[in-house]
């Protein structure tokens, strides 16, 4: 028996919206501690990892660990039948469920849907707990804007960290550009830029993955970039009171 009720159903819709361009079919894992999801994109360059803690739900029960294989595209079709202010409940009775039930509740309406599940034998990757040598916290809409703008100039974006801040740069056929974001300790938390740089890094990434993932900015006003030289970068959106949505992106390395 599994039941998880989102107080804010819109949050679940934003999460699915943020990952739908990156991953097609995913295994949703549910157990006593909460819900998690880990899936790579088709090119095995990016990995999405979602972690939602049971304490963040209005109601949560999961007697036995469950794996529910679902198509993100079909999940979206079901979620499109819900309102952004609905409470959303996920439920299944069986131990080996073949469908996942959804209840959308608003003041004047209650809807019930069933999504057919699929069996996915997806390989899971072990993501080692890493001490990152550069960790940058910055406004998510600023990161989104920089990626979108520099992404117009070149498909690869460079990221260089230092004690002073973080620099994004591109060198393309049409020319080059760089954006340096300085640290600030403004009292407005959503505008703060913080850099913990034990070792500076200088990395290059395919910016289109950032642009696909940055829909997650709707989840949090801040984004955390964790980096070590020649290692995948982690973009993390903290989901208030519930958990986090992370994108791991493998770097591009000079030939």
């Amino acid at each position: 028996m599994f039941e998880a009720k989102f107080e804010d159903g819109g949050l679940f819709k934003k999460i699915v919206e943020a990952i739908k361009e990156l991953v097609k079919n995913v295994n949703l894992e549910a157990n006593g501690t909460g819900i998690s999801l880990q899936a790579m994109d088709t090119s095995h360059v990016a990995l999405v990892a979602l972690q939602l803690n049971e304490k963040g739900f209005k109601k949560y029960r999961c007697e036995k660990s469950l794996t529910m294989g679902l198509s993100i595209e079909n999940l979206q079709k079901i979620l499109k039948c819900s309102g952004n202010d609905d409470q959303i409940t996920l439920r299944t009775q069986d131990e080996e469920p073949t469908t996942l039930s959804f209840t959308f509740e608003s003041k004047n309406r209650i809807s019930e849907f069933q999504l057919n599940l699929m069996s996915l034998d997806q390989e899971q990757l072990g993501v080692p707990d890493t001490e990152y040598s550069s960790v940058v916290r910055m406004p998510s809409n600023e990161f989104t804007k920089i990626c979108r703008e520099l992404g117009n100039i070149n498909e690869a974006i460079g990221i260089e960290t230092s004690k002073e801040g973080i620099k994004f740069y591109v060198k393309g056929d049409i020319g080059e550009g760089q954006v340096s974001v300085k640290i600030n300790d403004t009292e407005k938390p959503e505008e703060r830029v913080e850099c913990e740089v034990d070792e500076p890094v200088n990395l290059s990434f395919a910016v289109r993955y950032f642009n696909l993932f940055n829909k997650a900015s709707a989840l949090s006003s801040q984004v955390i970039l964790s980096m070590s030289q020649d290692q995948p970068l982690v973009i993390e959106y903290i989901i208030e009171e519930m958990g986090s949505l992370k994108l791991y992106l493998a770097p591009k390395i000079n030939d």
Binding site: V45, G126, S204, A206
Partner: peptide, 14 residues
């Protein structure tokens, strides 16, 4: 020219 690396190079399959 830079080459895109795959995640399998960094993360092990469980």
């Amino acid at each position: 020219e830079t080459k895109q690396i795959k995640l399998e190079k960094f993360f092990t399959k469980t």
